[in-house]
């Protein structure tokens, strides 16, 4: 079985399981509803409010209720995103992926290079998920029955916005950290600490092909913590930009047109940035990728100090979105 088939199975299998599980749940709900029609109606006896933990104790009861809703939603989203990211990040550990980097290279080099490269490729999948997350976050405050419900509860729009956005960010970071940790553990389980053995097979005077040389140099130069950090900051940046664009789109009299335009502009902008950094590779692209801590190619890492740029930019984008969302009408 080749690597692509395994990835497809990994992606499709849970979906199939979810569909089957969903159908079973609906069937069970229907059976239950049929029983309810026959059985005497249980009176409305509300459950006791769950005790507020340390984190929620400083909030009012309505605020806690809303936060609990966000946490429950975040939990569901966490499992989905973490699973998809694990699939993407571990795809570099499949034998077919590892062998793509040339049988002439030592296994440790091939595995490590393949693993790191698939993590950088995972950025695209992560970005797509961040756009989805931004949509889910913004729509619940700007569109339909859910927004109407949320915005008629006794909570400030600022609280509605930040509770939703911060729980989404926490979910994103938690799922990313989980996926990276799982992929790293799988790397250790199947191949061991390969990064410690990159130079093991080299004898003084060994002649390397150009490709081997490049792979080895890039593998040695790559900073894993900064690669992981770059994934997190990039996800945050895409999410924040998505939230701002979709909020701007909600300002249009025709929201679906406005959002459609926001998505088109967002995609065009994203493609332009990727093209600039990956294809043009000029001085501007280099500067852009360093300043924004975009670590999309293996090799020398950007400085840690630059991590503040995407974080602060995201904060500014979200702050603007929060100011704008207060003026969005339903």
């Amino acid at each position: 079985m080749n690597g692509n088939t395994i990835i497809v199975i990994e992606l499709v299998a849970p979906l199939a399981i979810l569909i089957v599980w969903g159908r079973l749940k609906i069937a069970r709900a229907r059976r239950k509803a049929a029983d309810v029609d026959c059985a005497p109606v249980q009176p409305f006896e509300p459950k006791l409010e769950p005790a507020s933990g340390f984190v929620l104790s400083s909030f009012s009861v309505p605020q806690c209720t809303y936060l609990r809703q966000q946490i429950a939603l975040g939990r569901a989203f966490y499992y989905i995103v973490a699973y998809l990211l694990v699939v993407v990040f571990t795809s570099g550990l499949l034998p077919t992926s590892v062998d793509r980097y040339g049988p002439e290279q030592p296994l440790a080099q091939r595995v490590w290079y393949s693993y790191l490269e698939h993590i950088t490729l995972g950025e695209l999948a992560l970005d797509a998920m961040m756009v989805m997350a931004a949509m889910i976050a913004v729509y619940a405050l700007t569109t339909g029955a859910q927004a109407s419900f949320n915005r008629t509860r006794p909570l400030t729009l600022r609280f509605l916005f930040w509770a939703r956005i911060l729980s989404a960010i926490a979910t994103i970071l938690a799922s990313l950290a989980t996926a990276l940790a799982v992929s790293f553990v799988l790397l250790l389980l199947f191949y061991g600490p390969v990064w410690l053995h990159l130079l093991d097979t080299f004898q003084p005077g060994t002649v390397l092909s150009h490709r081997q040389e490049m792979h080895l140099i890039q593998s040695l130069q790559t900073s894993v913590p900064r690669l992981f950090l770059s994934l997190a900051t990039m996800a945050l940046l895409v999410f924040s930009a998505g939230v701002l664009l979709l909020t701007l789109g909600s300002w249009f009299p025709n929201k679906s047109t406005g959002r459609g335009m926001a998505v088109i502009f967002g995609l065009a902008g994203g493609i332009a940035v990727v093209h600039l950094v990956h294809v043009v590779r000029g001085p501007l692209a280099l500067l852009l990728s360093r300043v924004f801590f975009l670590y999309m190619d293996l090799g020398p890492p950007p400085r840690y100090g630059y991590v503040l740029v995407p974080v602060l930019t995201s904060a500014v984008l979200l702050f603007i979105a929060q100011r704008l969302i207060r003026r969005v009408e339903l």
Binding site: I26, A29, R30, K32, A33, V36, D37, V41, Q42, F44
Partner: peptide, 8 residues
């Protein structure tokens, strides 16, 4: 009906 699922 309190316990009828939303879809029904």
């Amino acid at each position: 009906p309190l316990d009828t699922p939303f879809i029904k």
